[in-house]
């Protein structure tokens, strides 16, 4: 047995404000390691992906970004319904925890009427598809219990999407898909310059100005996708 933990604050005052800076490892904000992950061609983690998805979707009120950690711990039904039941589209980053950990993503349209889940995977694999299907089924088992709504089955479709060329970029592809889908565009099926996108996302991390997201949106809409990204990088 280990000894007791005394967490009583020091007498005479609360915690030092310095303890609460943005670099705190428990803060939902980011820390320098996340920027390095983008710059050094490393894998992305749930915190970085969640942060950037929040940036992308700040003006998309009809969308809900589903927390990837729900895969590990599903919230209680009432909480899940409060978060997502009123939304028109759900974007779900899906983490595949296996020998080669991986990110793919799901977009669920018409979640309240006749949900259709589109699965975008930069490294297609039957096990990824099966896991994504199980996950979205679990969510809708809570949002729309089949015993109450027997006709509301989730239609699941694997989408032919752009493929990564290395073992580190799946998170980048999830973010790129999210940007296009949030803009109402079809995500690119080929030619995703992941290095360029890494620089764009790094620039977004370095800026707290939400205007950059709208600048990025305009740049992508104005030109062809790849040229749009280069424009966006100039803006950022």
């Amino acid at each position: 047995m280990k000894g007791p933990i005394d967490s009583t604050p020091e007498p005479g005052g609360g915690d030092n404000d310095d303890d609460r800076d943005a670099m705190d490892p428990f803060d939902l904000n980011l820390h320098p390691d996340h920027l390095n992950r983008l710059r050094n061609n490393e894998m992305l983690d749930d915190r970085l992906i969640a942060h950037l998805l929040r940036c992308f979707s700040v003006a998309a009120n009809s969308w809900a970004i589903v927390d990837s950690l729900h895969l590990l711990q599903m919230p209680p039904p009432d909480k899940l319904k409060a978060l997502y039941a009123s939304k028109e589209t759900l974007f779900i980053p899906v983490h595949h925890q296996n020998a080669a950990a991986h990110w793919s993503c799901l977009v669920v349209t018409n979640p309240n009427i006749s949900p259709v889940a589109h699965h975008y995977d930069s490294c297609p694999n039957p096990s990824h598809s099966a896991a994504a299907r199980d996950y979205v089924t679990d969510i809708f088992d809570v949002l729309q219990p089949r015993r109450l709504q027997p006709r509301r089955m989730v239609i699941f479709r694997d989408v032919n999407s752009a493929r990564q060329r290395n073992g580190v970029d799946c998170g980048i592809f999830v973010l790129v898909n999210a940007i296009y889908l949030l803009l109402g565009l079809q995500p690119p099926a080929t030619d995703v310059d992941s290095n360029l996108w890494r620089r764009v996302f790094a620039a977004m991390l370095c800026s707290k100005d939400q205007q950059h997201m709208s600048d990025l949106s305009e740049a992508i809409k104005r030109r062809s996708p790849v040229a749009g990204v280069q424009d966006a990088q100039q803006v950022l």
Binding site: L69, H95, A101, H102, C123
Partner: peptide, 8 residues
Amino acid sequence: QEQIGGSV
């Protein structure tokens, strides 16, 4: 544990 992924 954190969720981290790259794949392949």
